[in-house]
Simulated scan of single mutants.
Amino acid sequence: MSARTDRAVAAAVAAGTDLGLRVDDPRVLYDVFSVIVHLSPAPVVARVPTVLPPSYRIDPHAQTAQQRAELAVTAWLADRGFPVVAPSPLLPREPVRRDGFSMTFWQFVDETPAAEPDIIARMSRVAQLHAALREYRGELGFWVPFGTYIPDGLAQLRHSPELLPPADLERAQREWNVISPVLTSRATFEAAFPGAGVQPIHGDAPYHNMIATPDGELWSDFELVTTGAVESDLAMTGSEAIAAYDAAAVELGLRPTDPRVLAVTEAAGRLGAIAALAMAPELPMLVEGIAPVRDLWRDTAPITRI
């Protein structure tokens, strides 16, 4: 893992230098699924994904397309004054592939220590984000994380019974077969849930993906930005958080959450965590990190119908 981090940093420095940046003192800010490196003294941060879902290893072009979507959405939000970590204005808003890594470049922001986030308090902010994203007209895939990560991850886990026992894998596959039609086809979703509707969403627990700065909190990590139901951004937050979101959403002219859609997206969220075990050989900490969600899933009644 240390060698992988070193390779990612070297690739980011080389790419930044080739694009005209002066990089004297690269500093790793974060290193889990991606290596986040400040290309100091330039006010630029490179995000270099290093632990990839199977779908991106199979099709690197899919990763590049999703990175383009993230850059486009965050740039659009930033251009409208929305508080996001924006793409760096010093470099082209395009992914750069170097030495086997596909990376993106972002403005450096001063992060300040922050207490554990108050999820309930952040729900009104999530509604504000959804209200802003509703106006986005760029091209986005339909529930990109679910339609690719889950089936490909489950397929790979068939070769790793030490990560997920066969009985668990068979249950996960049965549940995916039940819910996948509405998560992989917009027309099927809209027929099953008339009136619910879909729109651009953050895609990855936005209430956790905020960075505290001296000038306030900024939204970040839109790597899974996609078209989907807003419930997907709220899954597994609990009834109090959902009530807080609904109150804020109605004030903004948005619809309140649909319990049936929430149930489906929560089921998909649990399966997404299970499928992520396919990346554990590259990131062993995932086994322990996913254990609480796996145990919750095992204690939840199997999904047999929508």
Rank of each mutant, 00 (worst) to 15 (best):
A241H: 09
V144L: 05
V32R: 12
I150W: 02
P53I: 03
E139N: 06
S124L: 08
N177M: 13
G269P: 01
G289Y: 00
V73N: 01
V109F: 02
G16V: 00
A275W: 00
R158V: 12
A229L: 05
Y56P: 11
D152S: 15
P281L: 10
E217H: 15
T227M: 11
A72M: 06
V109W: 03
R270S: 11
Q173L: 13
A46C: 09
T148D: 01
R125L: 14
F105C: 09
A291M: 08
M103I: 09
A131K: 09
R68M: 14
P181Y: 14
A132N: 02
I120M: 01
V85W: 04
D31S: 12
A127F: 10
V225S: 02
T265S: 13
H208P: 03
A267V: 06
R174N: 04
A3Q: 07
A247E: 15
A12T: 04
P206L: 07
R134T: 09
A127H: 05
P95W: 00
F108P: 00
G238W: 10
L277R: 00
L283I: 02
G20Y: 09
P151M: 03
A187H: 09
L271P: 03
V264H: 12
D31P: 05
S88D: 05
A205P: 06
Y56Q: 11
R125V: 03
L77Y: 05
P151L: 05
M236Q: 13
E94H: 14
A249K: 07
D215R: 15
S34F: 06
T50D: 04
D299N: 15
L262F: 07
L283K: 06
G197D: 03
A276R: 11
P26M: 07
V178E: 14
T257F: 05
P281A: 11
P53D: 11
S40M: 00
